[in-house]
Amino acid sequence: MPAEQIQGKSPVLLLTASQIDEVLADVEIQMLPFAAEYLLGLCAWRENVLPIIDLVSFFGMIPTQKKEDARYVVVRTVDKNKKDVRMILRCVLKVSDHIISGESPTDCKAVLPKQAGLQAGFAPIFVRGLFQREKELFILPDIAAILHSNST
């Protein structure tokens, strides 16, 4: 995640492999009027219109000063707002190019946002869990909740 360290730990996003449809090196961003800073715009992906979200900005973290190449991850989730029908929602997350595929980390412990040293503005309702180990702070974003947040 292209964000500065928090209490000496690098923030890392955790996504399940089945959530990821594609990793793109670049996207053509169409700007969207009235959008909040974290909503970078829209892009066309396989004839679908998807929002592009910068989670560093969404979670109110400070982006790293180091110049990193961005990647755009197409992720999907189930729409929680539709109780009768199972609707798939998709979005594109702007992340750093440091992407690792592997087993979920086990040598870590669950923490609360305050314990992790996250800003007071960090909203726990948009995460499914926070875990930390020696050098990393793992964040499990709740993509459905993020997509249903009001971006104005």
């Binding site: 009027p33 929002p51 993020i146 009001n150």
Partner: peptide, 8 residues
Amino acid sequence: PPPSPEFA
């Protein structure tokens, strides 16, 4: 798509 702003 969500989370597009209401005005948009």
